[in-house]
Nucleic acid binder design. Structure first.
Lengths: 189, 189
DNA sequence: ATTGCTTTTTGCCAAATGACAAATGATTCC
DNA sequence: GGAATCATTTGTCATTTGGCAAAAAGCAAT
């Protein structure tokens, strides 16, 4: 819980009363490896915060290949915001790829808090904007680098992830085949 | 001017008085091909809206290669928001790649409007969030597709751009060499 | 330890792309 | 019109990566 409070206070100031109100809406959700937090074709119903474990966002491209769009590890918000905010069907899966422990808000509570707490919406805006900017910053440079460089970038961005998840997910994140990734790892070491 | 009003009214409602106030702060900026709207190493000082022409955001990667991150064509906001908002040096250039006609707000006016007009900040948030989401949606899929597919995606996303700018910019946007792009174009036609 | 299952690594060959240089085409300027 | 400059295409060859299948390694249940 403290982790989450620290997280949001990076983006603005709230008094104890407000923090208590926010905290009162939190529930804990445990997801087993491979379970979904939200699914393509459905409307995202909750906002989460990863306390322990790693999740990923993935989708299927035209050719039916499963693509990992990004990973979300400890102390980050996990939510399909586009779907959640606008009540529209998502086109991506959000999946636990290790056993996970999350804090979650229901959509009803989340919306109530936004209307109740002065300044909370500004904080949320900042959090979401930063997360979006980070996604652009992380994904975009991959386009112009070769596979080895991309793998090294991945290691830098997600230093605590590589040993905890299947390499196939990393390969699909990097846009290369598992075999290529394997060869690259061999070359590097 | 009408284009800009229509643009912002997509994201929320404002009365005539508010629109007039916003309009009163607008100036017109003409940029010649190759001129910069904002530069790496400097703090972005203005928000623009492209009336005519095409701009791009680009930067130099570790190996000194010039990378085009994205294009901004007619009826879109052009601003290095990270730099503009936080008054920090940018690491990217925003450059006109055809002769351009822009509407611009100075930072002072922009901030005054945000504080003066109720609801304007919410509209701006929505505009920026959507733009960021769009950048993720456009850039991310490039990672997992081959060069031909990437080029076809580019054509779909920017249908009015290909015949107006140098192919070298398109190549650097797609993360391929000019020669490869040339061969791909040959194969397709 | 053995079995069965999944993940990861290898090997082989084909296809795609990069690097570099040269040729061609377009545009501008005088 | 011709020269100079820049953009694009093409050629050649090297390198990277993909596709596919088999082997090896890791892991869990018994």
């Amino acid at each position: 819980m403290k982790e989450f409070i620290d997280y949001i206070l990076q983006f603005g100031t709230l008094n104890q009363h407000q923090l208590d109100l926010i905290a009162s809406k939190i529930t804990v959700l445990e997801l087993k490896k491979d379970e979904y937090f939200s699914e393509a074709g459905k409307i995202a119903q909750q906002v989460g915060f990863v306390l322990d474990g790693i999740t990923r966002v993935c989708y299927y491209n035209n050719r039916g290949e499963e693509i990992t769009k990004y990973f979300i590890d400890e102390n980050n918000l996990v939510v399909d915001m586009e779907s959640f905010d606008n009540d529209i069907c998502s086109n991506a899966y959000v999946q636990a790829i290790t056993d996970c422990k999350l804090l979650v808000f229901s959509k009803k509570d989340w919306r109530e808090l936004l209307e109740t707490i002065i300044g909370w919406d500004a904080i949320v805006h900042r959090i979401i904007s930063k997360a979006l900017r980070q996604k652009v910053e992380r994904r975009s440079p991959l386009v112009s680098e070769d596979a080895t460089t991309r793998y090294l970038m991945f290691l830098k961005i997600y230093p605590n992830v590589i040993n905890r998840i299947p390499l196939s997910y990393v390969a699909s994140y990097l846009g290369i085949t598992q075999s290529s990734l394997s060869r690259i790892r061999k070359n590097i070491s």
